[in-house]
Design a protein around this nucleic acid. Sequence first.
DNA 1: CTCTATCGTATGATTTATCTTACGACTGGC
DNA 2: GCCAGTCGTAAGATAAATCATACGATAGAG
Lengths: 109, 109
Amino acid sequence: MQIGERLFNLRQKSGESLQAVADAVEISKAHIWELEKGHSKNPSFELVRKLAKHFGVTIDELIGEAAEPNAETIQIKRIHRGLESLSERDRAIVEETIHAMQKRTESTG
Amino acid sequence: MQIGERLFNLRQKSGESLQAVADAVEISKAHIWELEKGHSKNPSFELVRKLAKHFGVTIDELIGEAAEPNAETIQIKRIHRGLESLSERDRAIVEETIHAMQKRTESTG
DNA sequence: CTCTATCGTATGATTTATCTTACGACTGGC
DNA sequence: GCCAGTCGTAAGATAAATCATACGATAGAG
């Protein structure tokens, strides 16, 4: 179970500081650290939910026995989150960019 | 969200007393009552998990937050799929693009 | 080199979840 | 009638989560 260890791994993979995830889930960075270190176990359900959402993993992936996602999927999920804050118009631009990248990659290799 | 209300309904449906579910999830009956009455919100994740298991519902059914996909989330999911076919390098570029868009939107209003 | 910001760490304060205990209302058995 | 048990309710105590703050180390800007 060790939520602390998972939390630490997820944070390392996403390359964020304690403060960054603390801000994202609206909690003190001290508490994030305490959770990672195991000085605090049994976080509230609400906090677990926020953490899972922020890291783009399911609650089972954060707490349960499910395997941890690799760096690649974390990057994708982080982008995914960023998309939500964009306007539909901007998202359309992003989508075109991706299509262009795909075509370029196809022809190159 | 009102976990208390859900809890009460589930308990009524199962016809159990406060003490019965308290025993089942290994917690005091007082606390079950406090949760139902809303005198305590934000139970620990572990407790929520036990309660869901005891009542035979999923955590989502206990806490309740079913999200029907709208047009926006559909667009996002489409982009998400596109991301998977990109190289890590290209994805990093996409991410920067999104960040730039976010900043522009922030400053604009 | 110095100043400043940010990193992880850590401690003591505060808030909140959770527990212990007890109450009055209501039952069923004697 | 009374006694014992269980019900939901509630207040007060305790434990634990969460916070506010500060420290030394490190890295970058000037």
